[in-house]
Amino acid sequence: MDELNYKSYRIEAENICVDYHGKVALYDANLRLKAGQICGLVGMNGAGKTTFFNALTGFVNISKGKIRINGESLRIAQQDQSIAYVPQSEGIDSQFPVSVWDVVMMGRYGSMNVLRSPRESDIQAVKDAIERVDLIELSAAPIGNLSGGQRKRTFLARAIAQRASILLLDEPFAGVDIRTEKLISELFIQFKNEGKTILLSTHDMIHVREFCDLVLLINKTVVAYGETSEVFTPENITSTFGGVSPDVLFGPES
């Protein structure tokens, strides 16, 4: 494979394995994503979705395999602010005494000086991001006072403020109402058009069909990966969810 081709992948995960104190959570997982692609990460509870994200952000070490971001190592990707991560609601302390503004500003920390004193451009980036998720009136509110959906949007704004080219979103649609859902999906389409690469985990099969170009089905390892139209079949889904038929998951509509 020539250099140009090699570089053309935004995310390249090759046979990665993650274990927690000897207990394997993910093994032999592969993923390749290019600019402008949206990929859905689907699997049941405990399948290793959050673990996959943790590996891609460098939050946990992989015991085997290789991860390249824009053809470079993870460390460089971190320094370049290439990856933004939007956590699962369970992954954060919703009562932590910080405001929406504070959280979104954290998206800029990686490119600030040691004291993290915001420049004019940082303040503008934060303002713009908060505006894009429609939270201007709440920007001074402590996150503990927000609804689940508003908190989701706050973290989304943090990712926007970071101006990363790769967005990793852990269950962005969990527990949000229709209005927020619509806002988030519209943002995803905009991100795609801006050439960002998006990997998102979800339990909602409809969303996958709606706007994921690719889908990655996992159950501790990759069950199936490819174009949504080809891979997202009842058989694959059934084996991903350990024998539960897609009727149960979708409702018996199709």
Binding site: N54, T57, G58, F59, R75, Q78, Q79, D80, Q81, I83, A84, Y85, P87, G91, I92, D93, F96, V98, D102, M106, G107, Y109, G110, S111, L115, R116, R158, Q162
Partner: peptide, 19 residues
Amino acid sequence: RKDLILYCFDPRHAKTVGI
């Protein structure tokens, strides 16, 4: 101060942005 607050709040994000 700010890094420590972030570290207590969301160490994952801290790691992701190279802190």
